[in-house]
């Protein structure tokens, strides 16, 4: 017996959600509105757009000149870190899922257990000293390496469970056909775990994209700054040009929003799956 859907009740739920969404998106809307204003316009009316003819397009041009470089750095770091992370994690997960060998349990728990040993602000000290003694200060490579290692735990954990669920016969027949470990990884693991890899890639990418403290300590030169460091500097300017600043924020936010709209279905699925495992 299908239940009658109460129109009124549904309307209440929708209204609640829209109300919360409106509040949640309000800062973004304001960012966009202010990005077209100069300081006077902002002081007069911060709430809504002025007439289109008064829009300060040069805010965006100016901000692009500053922020585009940060975006490029962030993209380089994030893409390299994600790639390196998965290149390291897939063979590890494959071995952990498929083979028994001495020390397996110890190694696995050493890996997953460190999830419960959170780093504190003090770990940042020793991490920074390590980077300094490796000669990687003021080098994007430091962020890539730390980022890719930071993603290992979750990636191996999730990938191992996934690879364990792939039927054993597939691996056996590939081996009889003469495929080695890399052959099996390339021909079986990679094609079958596309969606999991995508999910992991998104999670790691966002982590790298938002990382602030380490880049702040490691990167000295303006040309190497990633988005968070650059935005901080933009915010710290003595005389605030609100329009420029907000345009800079908008530009910094755009790449992922655009990417999101192209890969929406995948993104939502991936993040939900990530949330389940997380």
């Amino acid at each position: 017996m299908p239940l009658r859907v109460s129109k009124k009740k549904e309307a209440i739920k929708h209204a609640m959600l829209w109300f919360v969404l409106l509040l949640a998106f309000f800062p973004l809307l304001l960012m966009f509105v202010v990005s077209f204003k100069n300081n006077d316009q902002f002081m007069n009316n911060p709430w809504w757009f002025d007439a289109v003819s008064d829009w300060q397009w040069e805010n965006w041009a100016k901000a692009w000149g500053i922020v585009s470089n940060y975006i490029a750095n962030s993209v380089v770091v994030a893409v390299a870190a994600v790639t390196l992370c998965l290149v390291m994690a897939v063979p590890t997960a494959y071995v952990m899922a498929r083979y028994k060998f001495p020390g397996k349990g110890v190694l696995y728990y050493a890996l997953v257990g460190s999830m419960f040993l959170p780093g504190t602000a003090a770990t940042l000290v020793t991490m920074f000293m390590l980077i300094r003694s490796l000669g990687l200060v003021n080098n994007l490579l430091a962020l890539i390496l730390v980022g890719s290692v930071g993603g290992q735990i979750v990636s191996v954990f999730i990938l191992r469970q996934f690879i364990e669920d792939i039927p054993k016969e597939l691996f056996e027949s590939a081996r009889i056909d003469g495929a080695g470990h890399f052959g099996q990884i390339r021909n079986i693991v990679l094609p079958m775990s596309g969606s999991v890899l995508g999910t992991l890639a998104i999670m790691q990418f966002l982590g790298s994209w938002n990382s602030l403290m380490l880049p702040l300590l490691v990167l000295r030169d303006d040309e190497l700054w990633t988005i968070p460091v650059g935005l901080m500097a933009l915010d710290g300017e003595y005389v605030k040009q609100w329009g420029d600043m907000m345009a800079g924020f908008s530009i910094a936010a755009l790449p992922l929003v655009i990417l999101f709209f192209f890969t929406m279905r995948f993104f939502v699925k991936g993040l939900t799956a990530g949330a389940v495992k997380g």
Partner: peptide, 10 residues
Amino acid sequence: VIPMVIPSLV
């Protein structure tokens, strides 16, 4: 999901 893809620093 959209707010999640905006950098947290923004």
